[in-house]
Write a protein that binds this DNA or RNA. Structure first.
Length: 420
RNA sequence: GUGGGUGUAGCUCAGCUGGUUAGAGCGCCGGAUUGUGGAUCCGGAGGUCGCGGGUUCGAAACCCGUCACUCACCCCA
């Protein structure tokens, strides 16, 4: 019986890792450029951290967490998202006491026990940022700007930034009964899911995919009309800020975030070429969360993007960095030994060099050199060894020249173009 | 958790209402070229037809079960 990877996880084979490196490096580069600093937190935490931050009644906590008992019985959970652990670390290390801006970014695997589908895995990867301690709406704008710029830099097609004002918890508490009353009058026109949502998550009805539900809720009371002046003011400054720096966005009064901790600004970047899971990245403000987890009353904004989803939309022809390499084709009784030493000398000189130890004939070596796409091949047979020389062959032009063995590393180093 | 689709060579897929030794393209190996890659030509290797049972003279095909993958719902990045 062959052992296979478990459901919902994926191997990234060497053919795909350059694309992933491009995505990861682009994300990190933009985040650092915006003053965010990388933080690395554990991929598992005590279960209560997630239950308290994400919301005990959300699907994630209720049925999607990978939870298991540690040897002493304490309940541990593989992180389903990155914010909870980052906030925990922020509190635990008393980072609020540091006067510098506390802006973090993270990158890594997350785990949710869901049925896999396009753009959704059980082990998936997110890049995210969290900006702590700044209630100024410019922090919201900064975070959305970073998200937009890094996705644009990756030349992802068909991107849309949608934003909404969720208000404060008190605003939503005031609004919810109005909405529920309206929905109850419409119940017969709603899909089965939405009829259930009236009780469980009425705001979510607004964001239903079913066209009939959207029609039915066109005239529903809007959260906007229930917002406090402070919430309105914050959001106005957010949209003004986005305008000022030229970030295109659409107001979407139906946009609701699933996690309990969001307030005020909520946003989502969707992509048209992505299948059903069309959200690439999403985030918002979560001013109450740090306090809720036992820290000071520290405001915060952040986002997370799904790297699998980015990889799905990343154009096939994006230019990937390539390393110019050299192949050592050593054949013949003495030459194989001399070639092996030469291979090591090249590498020590910083020249990416390779050799297939299985190949015995020059023909077999050249075939491998071709497959590897190297720029130069060093041809080294017993004749050359006797003369203390080697031939370097330019694989594109087929031009060959004789060189002394001793000058090979320096010559090749000079010939190879700088890594692009 | 619910529903649909698909499982045949390393990869992408043909295979008719059940009928001989299960095919193609690409890839791989060898030769034409005994020290020169890609292109061409010639030759070759490679398959428990996902697995288990059933129907039948005969099953890759039909039936039942099962597993895997996949898409979608729910929910979310």
């Amino acid at each position: 019986m062959m052992i296979k990877a478990i459901k919902g996880v994926k191997d990234l084979l060497p053919e795909e890792t350059p694309r992933w490196r491009l995505i990861e490096e682009t994300a990190r580069r933009w985040a650092l450029c915006y003053g965010f600093q990388e933080i690395r937190v554990p991929i598992f935490e005590t279960t209560t951290l997630f239950a308290r931050s994400i919301g005990a009644t959300t699907d994630i906590v209720e049925k999607e967490m990978y939870t298991f008992a540690d040897r002493d019985g304490t309940s541990l959970t593989l992180r389903p998202e990155g914010t909870a652990g980052t906030v925990r670390a922020f509190i635990e290390h008393n980072r609020a006491a540091d006067p510098r801006p506390q802006k973090y970014c993270y990158l890594g695997p997350m785990f949710r026990h869901e049925r896999p589908q396009a753009g959704r895995l059980r082990q998936f990867h997110q890049f995210g940022v969290e900006s702590f301690g700044i209630s100024d709406p410019r922090a919201d704008v900064e975070v959305m700007s970073l998200l937009w710029r890094l996705l644009s830099d990756l030349t992802l097609p068909g991107l849309t930034l949608e934003i909404n004002n969720l208000g404060y918890a008190a605003d939503r508490a005031q609004y919810a009964p109005l909405l529920v009353a309206f929905l109850k009058g419409m119940e017969s026109r709603l899909c089965g899911n939405c009829q259930r949502r009236i009780e469980t998550n009425p705001l979510r009805v607004l964001d239903c995919k079913v066209p009939e539900c959207r029609q039915a809720t066109d005239d529903a009371p809007r959260l906007t009309d229930s917002l406090s002046p402070a919430a309105r003011d914050h959001f106005e400054r957010v949209t003004a800020g986005l305008d000022a720096i030229g970030i295109p966005f659409h107001l979407n009064h139906r946009l609701v975030r699933g996690l309990d901790y969001y307030c005020l600004t909520a946003f989502e970047v969707t992509c048209s070429h992505l299948g059903a899971q069309n959200a690439v990245g999403a985030g918002g403000r979560y001013d109450g969360l740090v306090e809720q987890l036992g820290g000071a009353a520290v405001p915060a904004v952040g986002f997370a993007v799904g790297l699998e989803r980015i990889a799905l939309m990343l154009p096939q022809d994006v230019p990937l960095p390539t390393i110019p390499r050299v192949y050592v084709a050593a054949f013949g009784a003495q030459a194989v030994d001399v070639g092996f030493v030469l291979l090591d000398e090249l590498r020590r000189a910083g020249i990416p060099a390779d050799m297939d130890f299985r190949a015995a004939s020059l023909k077999a070596h050249l075939r491998q050199a071709d497959r590897l796409g190297v720029l130069y091949t060093v041809l080294l047979g017993d004749d050359e060894v006797a003369k203390g020389s080697a031939i370097i062959r330019n694989m594109q032009t087929k031009a060959q020249e004789d060189l002394a063995l001793s000058e090979l590393p320096s010559t090749l180093l000079a010939r190879l173009p700088r890594t692009s």
